[in-house]
């Protein structure tokens, strides 16, 4: 179980960061530095959130129901608190673009969808 989750984390985490850096460089070349920084910051936190989800998963499955509920609730509160950090920073700091940060926060989800839709396309072709 652990190996499968670690592989999934590594795969989507790496793809998301590579996509964020690639799009970020493209933005910098176009002169949109604030968007590039926002996107990369949002993506870092998106990957962190995904990694934490996967790390906490085995902890939830093993112990008693009471302990599992406590860990699950704590995980949700902690992860959402973590995701709030780049949003607050981008609203407070002028060198970060808010819209790009929000887009970055969905980078893992976008990569998951893109990966599976691409596979589906290849299967049907």
């Amino acid at each position: 179980m652990g190996a499968e989750i670690a592989y999934t984390q590594k795969r989507y985490g790496t793809t998301s960061m590579m996509a964020a850096i690639f799009i970020g460089i493209f933005f910098i070349l176009l002169g949109h530095k604030t968007q590039a920084k926002g996107l990369i910051l949002g993506s870092i936190f998106s990957v962190l959130n995904f990694v934490l989800m996967g790390e906490i998963l085995p902890l939830i499955v093993g112990p008693s129901r009471k302990k599992s509920s406590f860990i699950s609730l704590g995980s949700i509160v902690f992860r959402h608190g973590l995701l709030a950090v780049p949003l607050i920073l981008s609203l407070k700091m002028e060198w970060l673009d808010f819209t790009a940060t929000v887009f970055g926060l969905f980078m893992v989800q976008i990569m998951i969808m893109g990966d599976h839709l691409l596979k589906r396309f290849h299967r049907s072709a």
């Binding site: 179980m1 989750i5 999934t8 995904f50 989800m53 996967g54 969905f106 989800q109 998951i112």
Partner: peptide, 16 residues
């Protein structure tokens, strides 16, 4: 392993 991997991916999208 496959089931937990699917659960993780599904939950990540459901959290949007």
């Amino acid at each position: 392993g496959d089931i937990f991997k699917n659960m993780l991916v599904g939950q990540a999208v459901a959290e949007s």
